[in-house]
């Protein structure tokens, strides 16, 4: 099963953190960014509200994650800390729905750290592969 499963992951990323490489998907892929991650840039990770994250999961994403600035160094002061709390909130929702809370994650990175950005994507893809497809997929 894991052989045929192609994860579908959505990443909401802080534009400020990924400014130098996200506009070049070809370059990212060449640097090792995994397949199956759809990057959505946002003006601040703190702008991604609970509904938006839930809707992505409802739409059948196998995993969703948010990328924000380092907690103490958010470009918008506390944006990434807020994003982290929202991700935690959704983990609880997933638990109550009988779904795996690991389908949503929060990641932090220093501005422009492409290597870290790729590492997070690989980590998330790895997690989702282990979990298998979302129970909401294709329904």
């Amino acid at each position: 099963m894991s052989g045929t499963f192609k994860p579908d992951v959505t990443a909401f990323c802080c534009r400020y953190a990924v400014y130098n490489f996200a506009e070049d998907p070809g370059g990212l892929a060449e640097a090792g960014f995994p397949e199956g991650v759809k990057v959505e840039q946002v003006s601040c990770s703190g702008r991604v509200d609970v509904v938006r994250l839930l809707k992505a999961l409802e739409a059948g994403a196998d995993g969703v994650y948010v990328v924000g600035c380092e907690e103490e160094k958010c470009h918008n002061v506390a944006g990434s800390q807020r994003a982290k709390k929202r991700a935690e909130y959704i983990k609880d929702v997933l638990l109550q729905l009988g779904m795996e809370p690991e389908r949503i994650e929060m990641f932090f990175m220093s501005r422009g750290d492409e290597a870290r950005f790729i590492e997070m994507a690989r980590e998330m893809i790895g997690k989702v592969k282990a979990l298998g497809p979302s129970p909401l997929r294709g329904k």
Binding site: D49, E58, P135, K139
Partner: peptide, 16 residues
């Protein structure tokens, strides 16, 4: 806002 969140959660549950 909370209405939208809850409605989405309910849809997710039923979809599952």
């Amino acid at each position: 806002r909370e209405v939208e969140i809850l409605a989405t959660i309910i849809r997710m549950d039923r979809k599952k």
